[in-house]
């Protein structure tokens, strides 16, 4: 019930956004980089509207809702950093990871997309332990984003353990790149 209300509020906001400031999405995204008071501005930032949502019925009494634009949101996330990295056998979020997640949260707060946090490990462990460790990492990221105000219902986690390395190689440089959590957009909430 709560969730429905929230979605309705988002719809109202979105409609207003489309009618008044359709071109400000990229500016808002860029503004999110500034850190500081991102949370506040993020709340009032306008969600981007997918090109497929149509725009000619805006004032004809037909209600419409924005489809979160997954491609756009993913681009924005990539722009602010959609990956955070971890130390060996650790799921602690260091300062760098936290500032990346601050920016991710800002992007997510002004969008309606759902995301999956993928937890990954390097190859220096056993498959099974690494699945558990990847889950810890993904959950650490989720918890941080939720604490920042992103609805937990928008975030799923998955652990790939060591199965999907980003870098190939059996050396510390590659391993450091593989100990990561990636925020991946899966789709919009409204209208689907």
């Amino acid at each position: 019930m709560l969730r429905k209300c929230a979605m309705l509020a988002a719809v109202v906001l979105a409609v207003a956004a489309c009618e008044t400031a359709p071109d400000e999405t990229s500016a808002a995204g860029a503004g999110g980089l500034g850190g500081g008071g991102v949370g506040g501005s993020g709340m009032s930032a306008m969600p981007p509207v997918g090109s497929g949502a149509g725009s000619s019925y805006g004032s004809t009494g037909v209600q419409r809702a924005p489809l979160g634009n997954p491609a756009e949101a993913q681009r924005e996330l990539a722009g602010v950093g959609d990956v955070v990295f971890f130390a060996f056998d650790s799921f602690a979020l260091d300062g760098l990871a936290q500032s990346t997640l601050d920016r991710q949260a800002a992007v997510l707060l002004k969008s309606s997309v759902n995301v999956i946090i993928e937890g990954h490990t390097d190859e220096r462990g056993t498959r099974e332990y690494n699945l558990a460790l990847g889950d810890r990492r993904a959950t650490a990221v989720k918890d941080y984003l939720v604490a920042y105000g992103v609805s937990a219902s928008r975030i799923r986690t998955i652990s790939y353990g060591e199965e999907r390395p980003a870098a190939i190689g059996s050396n510390e440089t590659a391993w450091a790149k593989n100990r990561r959590a990636v925020t991946v957009v899966v789709g919009g909430t409204a209208g689907s």
Binding site: L131, R136, T139
Partner: peptide
């Protein structure tokens, strides 16, 4: 088996 939930296995 193991169940991983909320970061705890």
């Amino acid at each position: 088996l193991s169940l991983a939930m909320d970061g705890n296995t």
